[in-house]
Structure formats: C-alpha cells, structure tokens
Amino acid sequence: MGRTALIVIDMLSTYEHEDAEVLVGSVRKALPGIGVLLERARAADAPVVYVNDNFGRWRSHHGEILEAALSGPCADLVEPIEPDEESLFVVKARHSIFYETPLAYLLSQLGARRVVLCGQVTEQCVLYSALDAHIRHLDVVVALDAVAPIDAELADAALRMMERNMAAELRPSGEITFEDERAD
C-alpha cells in the first residue's frame, strides 16, 4: 500500500483575479472542510503538501506567496489554513499540480500512494490534478466539502468525471482518514 498525503491546491491567494468575487464565497464554504483535513492529516503525521500557483512571479518562493496572500484583501481565507512548519510546499505555474513540478518525485520519496485533494478550483486545477494523479497510478480522494468551484454546474460535472473516469473516491472531509498503510 502506501502513505496518504494531503494536497492543498492554490489556497494561498490574494483573490485579485477575474473570478475572485464568485470564488471567495465558495472558498468560505470549503474552509471548514480543509481545516478538518489539515487537523486529521497532522494528527496522523501524514505529509501535508501545499501546491500553489506562483501568479507569474518567477522569483517568488513559498514565504513570499504566503506573505502576499496574508497581506491581501482576503487574508481571512488564508489565516485559518496557513502552512505550519512541517508542511511541504511546491510552486506550480499551470493548472495541474504535477505539470513541470517535482511533486511526483516528492510523493515517491514520501512513500505516498494515495492523495487527498482539496482546494480550488474544483472544475479546473482540482480536476486536472486528479487526472494527472490517476495517470501516475496514485489513488485519488477528493474531499467534497473542501473544494471550491467558480461554476457549480461545471464543478458537479468535474466531480462526476473524477469519480467515473479516474476512479476517484469522493468523500466528505470527516470521512477521510490518513492512517499510514506502509508495511512494517
């Protein structure tokens, strides 16, 4: 089997983009579920990996991205879920958390065979990341109450696609566990 890693997608944001107004409401609804996942993963000593867009700032690193998000107009959406000192961080530039990032290598080094995805945007980055995880033979779980859509109808279709085409488990955050399944 293998370990389970929690992947937090694009939650460190200043929300200064075209769809921000709609997305902010969805993020507010997803925050409690993300909080539950962070608490459960940390309690189980499971890897927590924040994978975040660099917003085209090619000299940025995770500290600068976090600082910008905490200084932005929606800092209240970042503070409750900000990375702790144990959290890992991967910078991405495109929709998928795997596209031209070291995430696949990192997960293999951690012994992770199962990923729990949460964050934003359900019908974009979460969908593409679930597909890329699936084609890398990782087991995929999507936390239904911890993903934030821009378009609810497209998000519902994306979730159905993840379940049907990528064998993703769709579960509420309270039903997701992070037990270490490594053989002794």
Results as ranks from 00 to 15, higher is better:
residue 2 G to K: 10
residue 5 A to I: 09
residue 8 V to C: 07
residue 11 M to C: 10
residue 13 S to K: 08
residue 13 S to P: 01
residue 13 S to R: 10
residue 17 H to Q: 14
residue 18 E to Q: 10
residue 19 D to P: 04
residue 21 E to Y: 10
residue 25 G to C: 00
residue 26 S to R: 08
residue 27 V to H: 02
residue 28 R to H: 04
residue 29 K to Q: 07
residue 31 L to S: 06
residue 31 L to H: 04
residue 32 P to C: 03
residue 32 P to A: 02
residue 33 G to A: 04
residue 34 I to S: 05
residue 34 I to V: 12
residue 35 G to H: 07
residue 35 G to R: 03
residue 36 V to A: 03
residue 36 V to S: 01
residue 36 V to T: 09
residue 38 L to D: 05
residue 38 L to K: 07
residue 40 R to S: 09
residue 41 A to S: 08
residue 45 D to F: 10
residue 46 A to Q: 02
residue 46 A to P: 03
residue 47 P to G: 11
residue 48 V to Q: 03
residue 51 V to Q: 00
residue 52 N to D: 03
residue 53 D to I: 00
residue 55 F to M: 11
residue 55 F to T: 05
residue 56 G to F: 15
residue 58 W to G: 07
residue 59 R to T: 12
residue 59 R to L: 15
residue 59 R to D: 15
residue 60 S to A: 14
residue 62 H to N: 07
residue 62 H to A: 09
residue 66 L to M: 06
residue 70 L to E: 03
residue 70 L to A: 02
residue 74 C to A: 13
residue 76 D to A: 06
residue 77 L to G: 00
residue 77 L to P: 00
residue 77 L to D: 00
residue 78 V to E: 00
residue 78 V to G: 00
residue 80 P to G: 00
residue 82 E to K: 14
residue 82 E to C: 11
residue 82 E to G: 07
residue 84 D to N: 13
residue 84 D to Q: 09
residue 88 L to E: 09
residue 88 L to F: 04
residue 88 L to H: 09
residue 89 F to D: 01
residue 92 K to V: 03
residue 92 K to T: 02
residue 96 S to M: 13
residue 97 I to S: 15
residue 97 I to A: 15
residue 97 I to V: 13
residue 98 F to T: 02
residue 99 Y to K: 08
residue 100 E to R: 14
residue 101 T to A: 10
residue 102 P to E: 13
residue 102 P to C: 09
residue 102 P to N: 14
residue 104 A to F: 08
residue 104 A to N: 13
residue 109 Q to I: 05
residue 111 G to P: 08
residue 114 R to S: 14
residue 114 R to D: 14
residue 117 L to S: 03
residue 118 C to S: 14
residue 118 C to G: 11
residue 119 G to D: 08
residue 119 G to Q: 07
residue 121 V to M: 05
residue 123 E to D: 08
residue 125 C to T: 04
residue 129 S to V: 12
residue 131 L to P: 06
residue 131 L to R: 12
residue 132 D to Q: 15
residue 136 R to M: 06
residue 136 R to E: 11
residue 138 L to S: 05
residue 140 V to D: 06
residue 141 V to W: 00
residue 141 V to L: 08
residue 142 V to N: 02
residue 142 V to H: 04
residue 142 V to M: 06
residue 144 L to I: 01
residue 145 D to Y: 00
residue 146 A to S: 10
residue 148 A to E: 03
residue 151 D to W: 13
residue 156 D to T: 13
residue 157 A to Y: 13
residue 158 A to I: 02
residue 158 A to M: 06
residue 159 L to F: 06
residue 159 L to Q: 05
residue 160 R to N: 07
residue 160 R to M: 11
residue 160 R to I: 06
residue 160 R to P: 03
residue 166 M to F: 15
residue 166 M to Q: 11
residue 167 A to Q: 11
residue 167 A to M: 13
residue 170 L to H: 05
residue 174 G to D: 08
residue 174 G to E: 11
residue 174 G to S: 12
residue 175 E to A: 11
residue 177 T to N: 13
residue 178 F to A: 05
residue 179 E to W: 04
residue 179 E to S: 14
residue 180 D to A: 07
residue 181 E to W: 14
residue 182 R to T: 13
residue 182 R to Q: 14
residue 182 R to Y: 02
residue 184 D to E: 14
